[in-house]
Structures are given as C-alpha cells and as structure tokens.
C-alpha cells in the first residue's frame, strides 16, 4: 500500500478525475430530472476531491486533505438546502422537470 506513488504516475489520477468530471458535466447537460442533476454535481465535487487527495499524497502536504474535508462539509450543507428547495418546487409545480421552471426566462 505504501508504494503507490512509485508505481502509479500522477497523470493517471489526472485522467481519471478529468473523465469523472466530464461525466458529471454530461449528466448536468443531458438530463432533465433535477435530482439527477444534483447527483451529477456531487460527482463533479468528488472528482475534484480525488484530485486534491492525489496531489496532497504526491507532494507530501496535508493541506490538500484538510481542504477535501471542508469540501465535504460544504457539499453536505449544499445538498440539504438544495433538496429542501426541490421539495418546495415539487410542492408548487408538481414536477421536478427543469424545463417547467422557466418563469425567470425572458
């Protein structure tokens, strides 16, 4: 376990996180269900978290892992408020299709 940085180049982690982030972007653009869009935002946050942990490990600096900890805190708060907003939207419009939420569109 402790010879990861000798066997795996940092490029592989960069490619993995870029692919995961792009799948999150694809989900946000592709789907119409607001809950799935939320989940894809979580996927993007996790891709960034993984890259920060990888760089923290390769550079020997624990600040990156503390930042990941704070990103998890913010993600938890964001999800609780966001799902409350979704419940509110569903109660008012009986739908969570984001195409129905065009009141602010001119």
């Amino acid at each position: 376990m402790n010879n990861v940085i000798l066997n795996i180049p940092i490029q592989w982690y960069i490619y993995l996180t870029v692919i995961l982030f792009s799948i999150g972007v694809l989900g946000v653009l592709f789907r119409r269900n607001a809950i799935i869009i939320f989940m894809c935002v979580e996927l993007m946050l996790n891709a960034v978290n993984l890259l920060m942990v990888a760089f923290s490990r390769y550079l020997g600096d624990s600040g990156g892992q503390v930042f990941v900890f704070f990103i998890m805190v913010v993600a938890a708060a964001e999800v609780s408020v966001g799902l409350a907003i979704l419940m509110m939207i569903y109660r008012n419009t009986k739908s969570i299709d984001i195409d129905d939420l065009n009141k602010l569109k001119w």
Partner: peptide
Amino acid sequence: MLPAAQNENIG
C-alpha cells in the same frame, strides 16, 4: 513523476 513525498503518513 513528481518528487516522491518523504512523509507517507499524512492521511
């Protein structure tokens, strides 16, 4: 490769 970190117990 990046320079290998000395301390591997930071996590």
